[in-house]
Design a protein around this nucleic acid. Sequence first.
RNA 1: GCCGGUGUAGCUCAAUUGGUAGAGCAACUGACUUGUAAUCAGUAGGUCGCGGGUUCGAGUCCCAUCACCGGCUCCA
Length: 643
Amino acid sequence: MVKITLKDGSVKEVPRGTSVYDVAASISGRLAKEAVVGTVNGKTVDLSYKIESNCELSILKFEDSEGSHAFRHTSSHIMAQAVKRLFPDTQLAIGPAIDNGFYYDFDTEHKFVPEDLERIEAEMNKIVKEDLKLERFEMPREEAIEFMAQLGENYKVELINDLPEDAIISFYKQGDFVDLCAGCHVSSTKEVKSIKLLSLAGAYWRGDEKKKMLQRIYGTSFPKLSMLEEHIHMLEEAKKRDHRKLGKELGLFAMMEEGPGFPFMLPKGMVVKNNLLKYWREVHDRADYVEIETPIMLNRHLWETSGHWFHYKDNMYSLEIDGEDFAVKPMNCPGGMLVYKTELRSYKDFPMRVGEIGRVHRHELSGALHGLMRVRAFTQDDAHIFMLPEQIKGEIINVVNLIDEIYKTFGFSYHVELSTRPEKSMGSLEDWQHAEDSLQGALEEMGINYKLNPGDGAFYGPKIDFHLRDSIGRTWQCGTIQLDMQLPQRFELTYIGRDGEKHQPIVIHRVAFGSIERFMGILIEEFAGKFPAWLAPVQVKLLTIADRHIPYALEVSKKLRAQGIRVEMDDRAEKIGFKIREAQLEKGPYMLILGDKESELGQVSVRSRDIGELGSLELDVFADTLLAEIAERALVSKFEKKE
RNA sequence: GCCGGUGUAGCUCAAUUGGUAGAGCAACUGACUUGUAAUCAGUAGGUCGCGGGUUCGAGUCCCAUCACCGGCUCCA
């Protein structure tokens, strides 16, 4: 192992020979797609540089993203050129550079099969060798349309027609291949050194499901073969952390054909889930929330009142009983509104923070399902906050801080998005404006960077979303804060104000984990199954050396369990090396090896999943240290290796 | 839902051109009583996702269907 001191002063231990790329990836908690260079002890190195000794490393602000963009963009043109050579009838749609690679959408009679990727790749490599220079030229609109029409590129004609009046229409040419393109590109095809086509996919023209489905080819490319190899290696490593694979291996949850999209929580997964909920309740109690529970199923009238019957009827599980329609709740809100109305409320009650751990069901499209990340039944850590208009900003700041605190507990980094009024929205423009301003104002006051998503809000109000990243860099919405401008009105919520009159309260709807199941998926991938002690299904694994040590092991087990520590015993007549191996693969944080020496002295020989053999400790000392680690919800072990 | 791919034992995977299913791990039984990442031997385990069809014969070919994987669309 070598020690790396990072810019922020923190120290990281990695195996000798780890590349700068891997370090950058692990720091950012994702693929180091933008990280291109760094400095090691002040000397500039590239991503493939292997770290052989202790050093100071700083990842440079990731080479200009425009550079890698141009590089990948040229790669996508090379692919289009190769496809046109092999399948001349192909029409080109669009082919941009994306994070980590590029794609191109094609329309052709030929159905691409995986074997085609190799052929196309080979042709691309030929084009690279041909050292074709990229030349840019412009054309007036009519001429450009004529030009593309002659080539039979109907999609390009459509694109040009949709360009704004004053747009400059530019093309890039490499050899006999020309493509409508705003740029930018590298100067020659020769600069692209290593290419890998990754997958085939379908994609609707212009992202519209009513339009034709085109064939998309995804690929990636690098200026050096070693970088491509590193990248492929990273993808393979990431696959090992896939929560679907680990969920099965570690016995956390299961998916069955009998219930597509309905996860089964196994005993070990349930321990994780329950500990997340316990933590949630603790944090929310401290933040002055109360908790309620509303029915899983309510009648049609309620869903008509809330607007869900109209908007989401097809995605709701409904049934008829005693001649009346019922639906399983896809959201907790309407139930929460009914609870609000059980009493006459006063402005003095505000802000009123009402939480609900609610299980909801939504009939998602079959193709959208994805492990625990996108399911049809999930548990929301919901809460509705009822308040006065002047309390909005303060409450939003409270919630943002709460979510931040929760994510920090797990060491997660996240990004924030603000989504505004969609086309199909309800409510007045003034209300929307006020709501959007409140959300934006809170974010800006807090100095939080966010991405703006115009038109992506819910039909009933704008929202702030918190996104977390999975092992291969896909992001998933977890936390969200939504201003609801519809429900208070639809449910005729009121409170008595200072003036003695009835007024309508402001409601925000928020989740921190979002979906406990999805959050668990992220957790599993983030920790690669190695949960911190407070979440680990089995915190201590007892391993006996021989049968005669079982009584002592039972005694140790009893003492630890009496202190609330989750213990499992492996008393099989197997060699200790074998038991350690199995325990290690189960990824629990601690093992205690119990033999003659330990039973005589009342000690335990401690082995940490992460650090290895720690030496012997008094049982009480071990238990106290572990309890402290659990109580603090520490992310790293509090034990130290005895020298 | 759409495009493409995959589906063989609990798990990971084999099975020439269509010729009647096999290995490792796990499980079970027995021996070994073991000191920090795999002890040995034996036993058992499959309507080849499900349903049709072609064929003398189908895990292998065709059709349909379900689930999963990669995307697209969607995500209150």
